[in-house]
Amino acid sequence: MKEVILITGRTLKQGSNLENKMSDAYFDAAARCEMNENLLTRIGASVGDAVKVSTRFGEVVVNAEKDDGLPDGHIFIPMGPWANAIVDPDTGGVGTPTFKGVPANIEKTDGAVLSVKDLIARYREG
């Protein structure tokens, strides 16, 4: 398990499927966690492996992806329900949750990446 900083944000693929969120394309675009090669190696994962990312606010399983534009110790999950399962809900006094710069832990996992429906169903159950 490695301590990292979580950033969320827009991507081209996530944005291209904004109106198509129940699709496989959106799942591929948003249920992912990007990190550089060094971090991938350190957690013993390869591209496409499931990784569990946890913060003080929850945990989520997503697919590992490589992006060497990320500095060491930083991970990027595209904005969307997977990222939002673990971002810091504190609104910093002005209403906007802390979507960027959240301390997190990341590890390789055997767990499954939940579909949108299953992910959201968790909130219905309380």
Partner: peptide
Amino acid sequence: PGESLRHMAKIPLIQIDPYANP
């Protein structure tokens, strides 16, 4: 964030949108 969705699940929620989404 999830914390907000938990309350949305508990109250009457009306959605107006062309597309299905979370």
